[in-house]
Structures are given as structure tokens and as C-alpha cells.
């Protein structure tokens, strides 16, 4: 039984068909890669899964529940978290506040308590502070907790975004180009981090990435998207040797050569 399944999902923006009749699935504990040329519709698929966009046609089911028309907040609560291609952090907040803000869904004090800052509030705030530290420890940001998020170097901002997604306690994690702009060393580091969080938190991961070495290292199964459609789906060996994939990436002449 798949954890998440897309069935004939189509999304149009006016006359433009961004995603067309896409069907694929991801099983529990799997890690799959979503690859394809720029503008193929990969991020749009993420936006459809997380409820930012509503699918024009088709169904998306998560743990046997139809989430096609669910709103983003309830989808997060169901257990799908994501990161963004262009990093979106709470820039003016410190690193630790970025995580604690996400954990506030567990804070059960009310407005009256908050206004007079009762002992219950301080106790819960402290508890969530400590819990935030755990997530920062895992991604290796423990030395930066009081820095403002926008003062971190690029690579660390990506890690903070991953930590924030983890703090949502997801079952399925969607990573949108986590290695974008990273050098080969940082990529290796990132692959290790993704493996580690997958083990630690029992995650199922869907990954959009252009760094092929990262994809090949992490994903036993790959879905190739081109012009909004699923071009093919298979093991990494299948994908590497498929002439259609070469054609999509390199063009007609190179594929034949």
C-alpha cells in the first residue's frame, strides 16, 4: 500500500498545462528522486501535494485519505512537510526561534496565560526551547542558535530549513533541490545528513534534485518528469540508460551520438 499516491493529476494555469496526467506513488520508508529539466513541473507537483495549488483534475491520496482539496495547514498536520527551492526562513528570527515557532503547535497555553506570562507559559517555552535544541543538534547547527537566520551562510540556511521541516514531525518529507548551489564536498555532507535524518525519524523522502550524483547516491527509484508529464519511472540503472531521458536532458543529436 503506497504512502502517497498521485492519480492522473493535472494542473493548468489558464491555457498553460503545467502538470499533465501525472500518476506515481511512494511507499513507506522509500526515498525517491524526482528529476527532469528546468520548468518540467517538479516544484508544481510539490505545490499540489502540499496544497499550495489545487489540482485541476485527478486525486492525491496520503495514507488512504484524499488530500486533493485539503488546505495546506491540515496537510502539514497529516504529516507532510517540505523545504523550498528558494530558501524560505523566518529571517528576522534567531535560528532557535525558527524551530520553536514550528513547535508551538504543541504549546497548549491560552491567550490569557500568554498575556500575563504565567509560570505555565515559561515552563512550556523552556520545554520547547530544549526540544528545538535537539533538532538543531541533528543537523549540526548547535553553535549558531542565537544567530539571526538571515545571517547564516547559504549551506547552513538549507540545513535550518531541513531542521524546521523535521520539527513538524512529518511522515513524508519533500525536499526541493536541497543541494542547489552546493559544492561537491557539501553535497557529500548533505547526502549523509539526509540518510541520517531518514534513519533517525523513520522518514519517507521525496527529493527534487539536479545534482545527479546526489540523486544516484540517495534514490533507488527515480521518476523522470518532462513537460509536465511522467517520462518514465524506474530504478536508477533504468533511468541512466534510457534514451528518452538522455533526449530530454541533452537533446536529439546528443542522445543518438
Amino acid at each position: 500500500m503506497p504512502l502517497l499516491e498521485l492519480k492522473n493529476v493535472t494542473k493548468t494555469f489558464g491555457g498553460i498545462v503545467a502538470v499533465k496526467d501525472v500518476s506515481y506513488y511512494i511507499k513507506q520508508d522509500e526515498i525517491i528522486g524526482l528529476i527532469g529539466p528546468n520548468g518540467a513541473g517538479k516544484t508544481t507537483i510539490f505545490n499540489l501535494i502540499t496544497g499550495v495549488y489545487k489540482a485541476t483534475e485527478g486525486n492525491i491520496t496520503f495514507q488512504d485519505r484524499d488530500i486533493t482539496d485539503a488546505n495546506p495547514v491540515s496537510i502539514v498536520k497529516n504529516g507532510i512537510a517540505r523545504t523550498f527551492q528558494n530558501i524560505r526562513l523566518f529571517n528576522k528570527l534567531s535560528v532557535i526561534e525558527n524551530i520553536r515557532t514550528v513547535l508551538y503547535r504543541e504549546a497548549d497555553y491560552n491567550l490569557g496565560n500568554a498575556l500575563i506570562r504565567s509560570s505555565k507559559v515559561t515552563r512550556i517555552e523552556k520545554k520547547l526551547y530544549d526540544k528545538s535544541l535537539e533538532y538543531l543538534e541533528v543537523v549540526g547547527l548547535i553553535d549558531y542558535i542565537n544567530n539571526r537566520a538571515d545571517s547564516l551562510p547559504y549551506g547552513l540556511q538549507r540545513k535550518l530549513e531541513i531542521a524546521r521541516a523535521l520539527a513538524l514531525d512529518p511522515k513524508l518529507l519533500l525536499l526541493d533541490e536541497p543541494a542547489a548551489g552546493m559544492n561537491p564536498d557539501e553535497c557529500i555532507d548533505l547526502v549523509e545528513l539526509i540518510m541520517k535524518i531518514k534513519r533517525t525519524y523513520n522518514l519517507t523522502i521525496m527529493l527534487i534534485e539536479h545534482h545527479m550524483d546526489v540523486v544516484m547516491e540517495l534514490c533507488p527509484r527515480i521518476v523522470v518528469i518532462n513537460f509536465g508529464q511522467v517520462l518514465m519511472e524506474g530504478s536508477k540503472l533504468d533511468v541512466q540508460n534510457d534514451p528518452r531521458v538522455l533526449r530530454a536532458y541533452l537533446g536529439e543529436e546528443y542522445a543518438n551520438a
Partner: peptide, 14 residues
Amino acid sequence: IAVREDSVAAEMAG
């Protein structure tokens, strides 16, 4: 503050 800083990310953070 989270909503001010990035409303899309805030929504994705539940």
C-alpha cells in the same frame, strides 16, 4: 512574526 517574515513558509509550518 513568522507570518510577517514569510507567509508561505508559515502556512507550510502549519
